[in-house]
Structure formats: structure tokens, C-alpha cells
């Protein structure tokens, strides 16, 4: 058991190398092949997932842009409508103002005419009264006393 034999040592070394090849060929290479394939598949799946995510993000961005555009358009339309509404409002108010002024002017005019007529009536009445008074004075004997009374009466009646 204790002597060395070169032939046997060489035999064992050759055996070991063959054994290593057996392990390599039938264990490690087979396992590695499967592991590598699986890794490739996982990588592939990861890449595909990344691409899909990127695509989804792009689409999202696109839609967001579209929505922003729509928002702008909406604002524009709203602003237009508001402006139109304001214009209409202004127009109506202006019309109303004009009408009002016209009415006031007419009313003033009417009032003046009425006033004039009333004045004329007064003047006519006054004339009548003066004539009446004058004829009364002329018809009665009159003193200073009478005159005074008469004046007072006249003034009071006026």
C-alpha cells in the first residue's frame, strides 16, 4: 500500500482527466446550456417589457399632448363665446340707453310743450282777470281804500 508506482499514478491522472471531461460534458455543459437559454429568454422578455413600457409611455405622452391641445381649444371657444356674449350685452345695454335717452328727450319735449300750453292758458286767464278787474274798477266809485282793497283782492286772486 505504501510504495509508489508511476504507471498507476499516470493511470489515475488520466482517469481524473477523463472524469473531468465526463463531468464537464454530461453535467456542467448540459446544466449551463439550460441556464443560458433560460437567461436569454428572461433577457428577451425583459427587453420586450422595456419596449412595451416605452411604447405605452410614448402613447400616454401623445394623448396628454392631445388633451392639452383640446383644453386650449376649449379655452379659445369659451373665450370667443364670452366675448360674443359681452358684445351682445354691450349692444343691448347701448340700445336700452339710447332708447331711454330718447324717451327722456321726448318726455322733456312733451313737458315743455305742456308747460307752454299751461303758460298760455294762464296768460289768457290773467288777461281775462285784468280785463275783468279793470272793468270792475271802472264800474265802481273808488277811493284809496277801495283801491287798496282791490289790489289786495287782485293779488290774492292772482
Amino acid at each position: 500500500m505504501l510504495e509508489f508506482s508511476l504507471v498507476n499514478i499516470i493511470c489515475v491522472i488520466v482517469n481524473l482527466l477523463i472524469l473531468y471531461l465526463i463531468f464537464k460534458k454530461f453535467l456542467f455543459e448540459r446544466v449551463d446550456k439550460v441556464l443560458m437559454q433560460r437567461k436569454e429568454e428572461v433577457d428577451e422578455a425583459t427587453r420586450a417589457a422595456d419596449i412595451a413600457t416605452q411604447k405605452a409611455l410614448d402613447t400616454k405622452k401623445e394623448y396628454e399632448e392631445k388633451i392639452a391641445l383640446a383644453d386650449e381649444e376649449k379655452e379659445q371657444i369659451l373665450a370667443d363665446i364670452k366675448k360674443q356674449g359681452y358684445d351682445e350685452y354691450e349692444r343691448i345695454v347701448n340700445d336700452a340707453k339710447k332708447k331711454g335717452e330718447q324717451i327722456i328727450t321726448e318726455a322733456k319735449h312733451n313737458a315743455e310743450v305742456e308747460n307752454e300750453r299751461a303758460k298760455e292758458i294762464y296768460a289768457a286767464q290773467l288777461t281775462d282777470m285784468v280785463i275783468d278787474a279793470a272793468s270792475k274798477i271802472a264800474a265802481t266809485k273808488h277811493s284809496t281804500q277801495d283801491d287798496r282793497e282791490l289790489y289786495d283782492k287782485f293779488i290774492n286772486e292772482a
Binding site: S5, V12, Q37
Partner: peptide, 28 residues
């Protein structure tokens, strides 16, 4: 050739057979 070398051959044969059985039809 010593007995130990022959036993080693037997071990190698056993290992080879066991490996062939264990690692057949590997799938992903």
C-alpha cells in the same frame, strides 16, 4: 495495474451512468 485504478474505473462508469440518467432530456 492496481486494484485502486480498477475501482476508479468502476466509479467512473457509475458516475457516467448516473449522470446520463440524471441529466437526460433537460428542458428550459
Amino acid at each position: 495495474i492496481y486494484e485502486s485504478v480498477v475501482v476508479m474505473w468502476i466509479i467512473m462508469a457509475i458516475i457516467l451512468v448516473v449522470l446520463l440518467i440524471l441529466t437526460r432530456d433537460f428542458k428550459v
